[in-house]
């Protein structure tokens, strides 16, 4: 859809705004509505809009496939690691209090880090979903299995 000027202009305007809003929702989540889940989805949505306009190949050049898989696992691992850090510093699992001297600051740091892990995982998993389905479509067409063509034959 690169040739459609309106789409390209609007998307170029929207994608940075969406990513910025995603970051805002991610890191401002303790003060306003939001958190890792919503931020991850927003971020992935910006990437999906980019893929709609410029194609999957270009989208994967920005963030390679291996990086997406690695990030999906790393987000969960970050979450688990923050939990273990609490244990190592003398608390219980996912107890944020020992992380920093002041309990309030420790709680806030723990929440931000944990939500960041959730956000990274959600964003990369949604990207994986979209990438898999988009690629499947291309492969099905390649193998001569166009579903709409099937339907026309059936009628």
């Amino acid at each position: 859809m690169k040739d459609n000027a309106i789409l390209v202009v609007v998307a170029r305007f929207l994608i940075p705004l969406m990513m910025l809003f995603g970051l805002y929702v991610q890191f401002h989540g303790e003060y306003s509505p939001g958190g890792g889940f919503q931020a991850g989805v927003l971020f992935a949505a910006a990437w999906i809009l980019f893929v709609f306009i410029y194609g999957l190949e270009t989208g994967l050049r920005i963030i390679p496939e291996r990086v997406i898989y690695a990030l999906a696992a790393l987000g969960v691992l970050l979450y688990g690691f923050i939990g273990l850090l609490g244990v190592l510093l003398g608390g219980r699992y996912l107890d944020f209090d020992p992380l920093l001297a002041s309990p309030q600051a420790a709680q806030q740091a723990g929440i931000i880090l944990v939500e960041f892990g959730v956000g990274v995982t959600v964003a990369s998993v949604v990207m994986v979903f979209f990438m898999m389905f988009a690629r499947r479509r291309a492969e099905s067409l390649e193998a001569g299995l166009d579903p709409d063509a099937d339907e026309d034959i059936g009628q």
Binding site: G29, Y31, G34, G35, F96, Q108, G110, I111, V114, E115
Partner: peptide
């Protein structure tokens, strides 16, 4: 926690 958003507090800390 010192944060105003209860939902975030419950999700990420109380019900971590």
């Amino acid at each position: 926690m010192g944060i105003p958003n209860m939902v975030a507090a419950v999700l990420a800390s109380y019900r971590s």
